[in-house]
Write a protein that binds this DNA or RNA. Sequence first.
RNA 1: GGGGAGAUGGCCGAGCGGUUGAAGGCGGCACCCUGCUAAGGUGUUAUAUCCGAAUAGGGUAUCGAGGGUUCGAAUCCCUCUCUCUCCGCCA
Length: 429
Amino acid sequence: MLDIKLIREKPQWVEEQLKRRGGRVDLSGFYASEARLREIRMETEKLQARRNEISGEIGRRKGAKQDIAELFEEMKTLGPALKNLETQLREQERIVEATLAVIPNLPLDSTPEGKDERDNVVLRYWPEEKTSGLLPFQPKPHWEIGERLGILDFEAGVQVAGARFTVLRGAGARLSRALINFMLDLHTGEHGYTEIMPPMLANERSLFGTGQLPKFEEDLFACRDNPLFLIPTAEVPLTNLVADRILDEGQLPVKMAAWTTCFRREAGAAGKDTRGLIRQHQFDKVELVWVTRPEESAAALEQLTGHAEEVLRRLELPFRTIGLCTGDMGFSAAKTYDLEVWLPGQGCYREISSCSDTQSFQARRMRARYRRGGEKKTEFVHTLNGSGVAVGRALVAILENGQQADGSVVIPKVLRPFMGGVEIMTPPL
RNA sequence: GGGGAGAUGGCCGAGCGGUUGAAGGCGGCACCCUGCUAAGGUGUUAUAUCCGAAUAGGGUAUCGAGGGUUCGAAUCCCUCUCUCUCCGCCA
């Protein structure tokens, strides 16, 4: 949520910033209803003040056994007028808040300008840029590798749940678990995060707080009999841990890491990535969330992104780091880096992590504040989130990058301790 | 699922329908005092928002949420949500 005062005081500037993200921007309706809101509020408060004055006076005169008839007389007209105004006020507040709730965040100055993903900027490659044809044999896509190894069972996923669900078997399931453990150990042991196991269902309020609601409900799985949604990312429960709280400055930054399963409808992705593990309704992810002081968030994003990159470096998976342009960022983000891992089986880079600084956008929605030492005023914190990293896609990358001509797959060294020492997965026969 | 109890400022905990934004305690902050790791004294200490040049002053709202009764509600009534607890069931 944007600062309503900012919109009021620098409307031109805010509109310009919003236009950088693309789409149509028209805040004129907003200005009108916001002005109307303040008008009604002032009038209401004036009457409320008078009502309180009269009520107090009635109490006083009753104590002194004085006449109160004239006061009752005034209340007779004031009462209904006030009630009417209060109703209007509530309605107008609802309108303004509903408008504000669907306005996306403003991009930072350091976010590259652009219309869509074609304008994203490649910042760096690790260890260097990859292109197709580097393997001494024709690389296969991970679904073929996985099926041959007997560790990915797409048909079983369909049988149990439906399209975009997959069953992992044997070494595949274990590899997934190994990845989770490896990542969590790295982030908690070396990067200073506190491990969290949050609920994987969240209420409407939490989803509003991080920005998935009210605008993107169609991306979520909802429960039929409870007002709960399956989380699309652990960003939701983790960030909302500070919702409605006023933190001490000394508690910041808060750094949390969590493994959760994530659930997404993929409503707008019909026909996209239908094969393999890339786009599933359910996937696992290790998520990193920071809560910082405002002046720290820019540096925090660099660190957070570095922590996600470190996962890929240690897994020896080639990747590149992308700066998302203004037109390609998510609703809540002010700046986003994506990590894209190299997939030789498909000859392309695919997103495996997305790290965003939302500034005070989410904090404002969930009223997450802190108090600077000695200050009376509270300030909104800044929140950041990033995948560190997506487990399913990491599995894909391991299969495609570790594949051998004979269909076997070499397991990255850092994962072997989590795999009981297994170094290679070999197909039967 | 059935029965009880409850929801008040950072925490604990009071609160006859009127001058209660809310006693008291703890914690926090400030100052004072005190020659013995500490104690004591005094004061102060919610959040949001509006008017305002104002870190001046003032208004308004908020005692789980939403309705209602009333001139006036933290206090009365209704609905909902949540928490605790006993029983049953259960990973």
